[in-house]
Simulated assay, not measured.
Amino acid sequence: MNSRGWQEVIGAVGIFGMVIVIVTIVVWNMAATWRARAILARDYEYRTLAEKANQNQDAIERKLTDINEHLADLRTRVHSVERVLKEIE
């Protein structure tokens, strides 16, 4: 093999190596992008879930307040009925 043949072999190996490096870098960057998108999507889902939990907590708190008001009203009514019954005895 003459010197020109070796140059062609070395050039082909160099180009092949460079192509492998470029493909590896591109794949690596694409994988990093996919991971970042997956993390953002997961964070968005967690944020949405947290907002729904807060809304549900607020609704439960309002319902508990209403129940406490009704219970207080019932207590006063029962107390007045007991007082009336004691007066009748």
Rank of each mutant, 00 (worst) to 15 (best):
I25F: 09
A31I: 15
T24Y: 07
I15D: 04
T33Q: 07
G14E: 09
A31H: 11
T33E: 06
I10Q: 05
G11Y: 12
A31K: 13
V19E: 02
N29I: 14
A12E: 12
G11A: 13
R42S: 10
W6T: 03
G17C: 15
T33G: 05
I22Y: 06
V27H: 06
A38H: 08
M18F: 14
M30Q: 11
V23H: 02
T24E: 05
E8N: 08
W6D: 01
D43W: 03
T24F: 13
A32G: 03
A31C: 09
W28Y: 11
I39E: 10
V23T: 10
I25M: 13
Q7Y: 02
A38S: 10
I10D: 00
Y46H: 10
F16Y: 02
L40I: 02
G14K: 05
V19F: 08
G17Q: 11
E8F: 03
R37Q: 14
I25K: 05
R35Y: 03
Y44R: 08
R42V: 03
V13I: 11
G5H: 04
Y46Q: 12
A38K: 06
E8D: 12
I22D: 01
R37F: 05
I39P: 00
A12K: 15
I39M: 07
V9S: 02
G11R: 15
R35V: 09
Y46M: 09
A36R: 10
D43K: 12
T24L: 11
E45R: 04
W28T: 04
V26K: 11
G11P: 01
R42K: 11
A36D: 05
G11F: 14
V13Q: 02
R35G: 00
I10Y: 01
I25T: 11
Q7I: 05
R37K: 15
I22W: 06
T24P: 00
A31V: 14
M18G: 12
I15H: 04
N29Y: 06
G5Q: 07
G17R: 14
V9C: 02
N29F: 09
V19M: 04
G14L: 10
R37G: 05
G14F: 04
Q7E: 10
W34K: 12
I25G: 04
T24I: 06
M18N: 08
V23N: 01
T33L: 03
D43G: 05
F16V: 06
F16C: 10
V21E: 02
G11H: 09
T24A: 15
Y44P: 00
R42T: 08
W34V: 09
Y44F: 10
A31Y: 14
I39K: 09
A12R: 14
E8T: 03
I22S: 07
V19C: 08
V19L: 13
G17A: 14
V19I: 14
R42Q: 13
I15N: 01
V9K: 07
V23A: 13
I25R: 01
A36M: 04
A31E: 12
M18T: 13
R37T: 01
A36V: 00
Y46D: 08
R42L: 09
T24C: 11
W6R: 15
L40Q: 12
M30G: 01
G17T: 04
N29E: 09
